[in-house]
Each structure stands twice: as structure tokens, then as C-alpha cells.
Design a protein around this nucleic acid. Structure first.
Lengths: 198, 198
DNA sequence: GCTTGAACTGAACACACGTTCAGATACCAT
DNA sequence: ATGGTATCTGAACGTGTGTTCAGTTCAAGC
């Protein structure tokens, strides 16, 4: 399919994924037709099947790619003591999600449109991400720097809060990325029971 | 359409809405057909049009009904000073949302499937709800009992955190409703900068 | 017992869906 | 120039879509 020298398909493949990402995020997987995606790419519907075996796989690949990017980026964070680690995690999460609002939308909203086997695979990646945060919270509780009655529950609450930023953040709005990052990180730390320096 | 004495349609109407609620929540609006809804009710597809002018209105009515219920219930909360009010709001929000996981799912996920006019109407109701929380936060900041750099942003962050509970809570799980309610309310207060009594 | 009318069926409407595939096209190495 | 191959078209496939409507059913009101 792909050749050594730059051929057409090296261009079209990514364009198909980009168009699918945009359209799925905007209208939802079920509401987008293969013909719409093809039109966005500037091609007939049949040509899409040179780049994906079917529509379901197109969705799955987008979600899997997103989660793998997320986990890869997470792995690059340097180790740190709990309070610094939570602060770092919160800022990382906000930054990463604000950079990819469409992927985030799909990853959280289209889970139910995955076939069971695909769902299981994505769920596993999600749990690995959550486990990273829970490890930080657990360590902080053990050291006595966090006040949390239940780390599992706090993990989910914090991720929901941080991810929520993608629901309202708009480029060029009242607050810049850095400010939003700082405010959310501070709220996350406080929610974990850290009393900030006066 | 409806008669004084109990006739069939007094039964079928609610059953249509209930079936649509269940199916839309599970599979998404776009992925559910009128024939599936009809089958769930035990009727042919054509009969649904005795109870709704079209599929879009069915969705809109479900969402509008949910938001109106939410606002009506909110209005019954007694006035209170900021800290007590935030605690009360958090517990109310959790309780209300845990009682209607399907409506919540639809209200947050199917916004993009609303026609523009319907979307505007639902958005307005949502903003009224958010305004109630922001008023509490604002009052608390004014009194000096909350530490929040930005009440608008905190409003959205807190609602995202609290609503997230519906993503994982399952009846008969490790924690009961009351425990979840208490833990989330405590986290919300701390996130707002309230230092809990030792 | 007859009439009325709401509740519902079953077939049909025009259109859109995901997917397949024979054939046209255009570019590559030889 | 020729053969080969990756790319893409355009039409077709069977199935499903939301919605309409003439006709059937059946219970209540007179």
C-alpha cells in the first residue's frame, strides 16, 4: 500500500484519519457516513477502503492511537514526590487534552459505539492511565500529605474535573492555557487536601 | 389523543418515552431507530407518531424534561450561607444525578444531535443551573470563606467533577450513595478552599 | 345495536447506509 | 515505449432509515 518514495497514499491515509476525527468529534460516529468522510477528503466513498477495512476500525484506530499517545506522553514525566507529582500530572493532563480536543471528545463519547472486543482494548488503556494517577494519590496518602478517604474514587473525580476543561475552553478566550492549567492544578491539589502555601 | 377515562394511550405515551430514554442512553440517539423503539414498546413504528411528531422532538422532550426537573428540584433547596450552601448543592447534585443516570447521559452526550433551535433552548436551561452554583461560589468569595481565583471556571470544574460520578457508580457497588455523596461533597468544599474541621 | 373515534397495523415512500468490485487512470521502474 | 501496480471512480448490492397513510380493530357512549 505504501511505497518508499512519496506517493499519493502517504498523503491520503492521514487525510482520511483527520477527516474522520473531525467529523466523528463534531457529529458523532453513528451520525457520520463514509460518504461524508470521503467528501471531506475529496474522494469517492469506495476509496476509503484502501485505508481502512471498515468504519468500525477507523473509529477504533483513532481511539487507540489517542490513548497510546496519552500513555507515551505520561511515561515521559519525571518521577517526583506526591505533591509535586500531582501538580505535574494535573498540568500535563490539562495541556495534553487542550491540545487535542477532538480526540478527547471521541475517546470519551464514542466508547459505546465500539464493538465489545474493541471496547475492552480501549478500556484497558484507560485503566492504565487512571492507575498512574491513583499511584500518586496512594503514595501521598501513605506519606500523610494528602487527605483522601478513598483514592480510587478521588482518581475518577479528579480526572473528570480535569477533563471537563475541554467542554468549555476555547482558543482566544478570556483565559490562556497557562492560567487555566495553574487554576485547575491548584484546585486539584486542594481537593486532595493539600493546603497551599500562604 | 388522551381521554378522561384510562385508555390505552395514557399507558403507551409514557412507555414510548421510557423506551426512547433507555435506548438513547445505551446506544446513542443516532444509532437508535424508530423501529427499535417501537419494538421495545411492543408496537409498530407508525404508532409512535401518535405520541411524538418526529424523532428529534422525542429527544428534545426528554432533555427538556430532565433539565426542568433538575431546576425545579434545585429551587426547593433552602437558602444557606456559602459553605453550607455548597455542601448542600454538591450533595443534591450527586443524589439527583445518581437517581437518573440515563437522563444525565443523554443530557450531556446528545447535545450535538439537537437541531440549533433546540440546542439553544437546552443550553439556556443548563446555564441557569450553572448560575445557581456560581452565585454560591461568588458569595463565598465575597465573604472570604472560599479561595477561588475564578468563580466561573470553578463552577464548571466542580460540576464536571460531581457529574463524573455517573460514569462509574453502580448500584450495589463497594460504596453506597450516602458515602459517595459525603466524599464528593468534602472534595468539592476543599477544592473551593474550605479547610475542613479537624 | 349502532355510531364514533382513538389506537394501531402493515405496506409503502424516497432516500441513505456500509461495502464491494470491475474497470479506468496515472505514475513508477525498466 | 512497455508492463506493472497503487490509486481511485462509478455503479451497484442488499438492507435500513424516518415518516406517511389507508384501512382494521375494538371499546365506550348513546
Amino acid at each position: 500500500m505504501a511505497r518508499k518514495t512519496g506517493s499519493h497514499s502517504d498523503i491520503t491515509g492521514p487525510r482520511v484519519r483527520a477527516a474522520a476525527l473531525r467529523l466523528f468529534a463534531r457529529h458523532g460516529y453513528a451520525a457520520v457516513s463514509m460518504r461524508q468522510i470521503a467528501a471531506e477528503v475529496g474522494v469517492q466513498a469506495g476509496a476509503l477502503y484502501l485505508y481502512t477495512p471498515d468504519k468500525q476500525t477507523l473509529l477504533f484506530d483513532l481511539m487507540q492511537g489517542h490513548m497510546q499517545e496519552l500513555l507515551a506522553a505520561l511515561a515521559h514525566l519525571p518521577p517526583a514526590p506526591p505533591v509535586a507529582a500531582l501538580n505535574q500530572f494535573a498540568r500535563f493532563h490539562i495541556r495534553f487534552h487542550l491540545d487535542r480536543p477532538e480526540s478527547v471528545f471521541i475517546a470519551y463519547m464514542e466508547l459505546r459505539n465500539l464493538e465489545p472486543a474493541n471496547f475492552t482494548a480501549i478500556e484497558a488503556l484507560r485503566r492504565r492511565y487512571e492507575a498512574a494517577l491513583e499511584a500518586i494519590l496512594h503514595a501521598g496518602v501513605a506519606e500523610g500529605v494528602f487527605t483522601l478517604p478513598d483514592t480510587k474514587l478521588a482518581t475518577l473525580a479528579l480526572i473528570a474535573m480535569l477533563t471537563g476543561v475541554t467542554n468549555w475552553y476555547r482558543e482566544g478566550g478570556r483565559l490562556g492555557r497557562d492560567e487555566v492549567e495553574a487554576i485547575y492544578a491548584a484546585m486539584a491539589l486542594r481537593a486532595a487536601g493539600v493546603i497551599p502555601p500562604a
